[in-house]
Structures are given as structure tokens and as C-alpha cells.
Amino acid sequence: MKHIYDDEASTLGDSFLKISALFFVGILILAFTTNPVATGTKEGERAPLLDGAAYAGNGWSSFDFSGQFDTSWDGNSSSHWVMLEFMDTDCPYCVRSADLYGEASEIFRDSNPEWNGAQVDFFASATQLDIQGHETSRAEIAAFRDKSTGYECAGQDCANRDGSAHDYVTYIDDIDQDNMDEWDIRGTPTYFLIQPDGIIAWVSNGGTNLGDVNGDGEQNTFIDAIVYLVTYDDTGGA
């Protein structure tokens, strides 16, 4: 019986094995020496970028969200956490929660002697939902924050919304919905509690259905998330 050998196939097989070996060496190096953290909007993932001008009471200016984080955070309580709300100034749920959000931004601060945890910096990314009657502008966002008159927020003058002016909340212009898309936001308000190293510690489910932070079976607010998760001085860890 005559055997026919395919030398060309042998060359290809040989080359394939050798180059594949190189490839797997590379993969093994990556697998054993790194532990990458995905960028995303789930708990445990690194928060994506947040673009747009920001308003903190003194006019609109450029904003660098990454500047809020310290990637080498070691769990200390001196670094600031971030609470981020995705909202629309014409969303009735957002208007109703404005009182609580503003109050929380005043409570969880270093300057509050009754709070012994890390400071939480409050942000709100204000969008314009694709719903009739949800037309907004930077002036309206500023009026919502400052509780000033002349603009309508969810059918009422922004000055008449519940709660006080949000002096400790920075508002970010997301009228073009870029941030909403990047963060995959399905409804407003949606809340994110972010660690000082930029990793998302807690995310609400969107709308009014907030996640159960402490596992007690009841729906919790973002305040529960802060109280339960943010680093304290006395414990040294969350």
C-alpha cells in the first residue's frame, strides 16, 4: 500500500502549533499577572465616564468626573465617595425625591459632626427624556438646583419643588442623553453609589424601585446604601 504524505499540511500544522503556543504563553502571562476590572454600570465594575458641563452654583464649567476618584484608594475613610443621580427636571419622581437628595447631600459631609463616615459628594446628571412635555435647558437645570423661579419643573415652578436649594449637589448637563446612553439608564431617577476608587458599590434598580441594600427584604433608599456601605472612622472599613 502506497502512503501519500502531504508536506505542505505538515508545515502548516507545525507552524500553527508553534505560533499557538506563543499565543497561549501571552494569554497565560495576562491571566496570571492581572485581574482586570470591567468598566460598566453594575456593582463591582468601574464607573464609566461622565461628560458634560457642570453647574455647582457659579455658572457652567467643564467637568472632569475621573478627577473625583483615587484609583489607589486603600479603604480609608478620608477619601470621598460619590453619589450620582440620573434625573430629569420634568420627571415627577425626580422632583419628589429632590427633598431627600438635597437633605442627604447636607448630612453626609465632613463638616457635619453627627456623621463620622467618609464624605459623600453628590452629583446629578440632568437629562431630557424623550417624553412630551419634558423640554429642559441649562437654565431650567440651574433653577431646579437653586430652587429659583421662572422655569417649570414637572408642571410647577421650580422654586416650588419640595426641599431646599441643592447647595452641595453638582449638576451635569446631559440634555443630549450621552451619559444616559453610556450608563445604560432605563428610567429616572436612578442612583449610583461609587467608591473613592471609582468602583460602583451600589446601584438602584431605576424608577422608584430601589434595591434592597441591607438584605432586610424591604425596599431601601440611597440613604440606606450610604449608611450601610460608606467607610466609617470607627470601623475603618465598609
Binding site: G26, I29, L30, T33, T34, N35, P36, V37, A38, T39, R46, T71, S72, W73, D197, G198
Partner: peptide
């Protein structure tokens, strides 16, 4: 491989 390694390290928070 080095750039992919840097990508992974940066995502961990390292410089």
C-alpha cells in the same frame, strides 16, 4: 501583549 497587560493593570487602578 504588553499593551493588553497595561490595559488590565490600569483597570485594576494601578499606574
Amino acid at each position: 501583549v504588553q499593551t493588553q497587560w497595561i490595559h488590565a493593570k490600569v483597570s485594576e487602578g494601578a499606574n
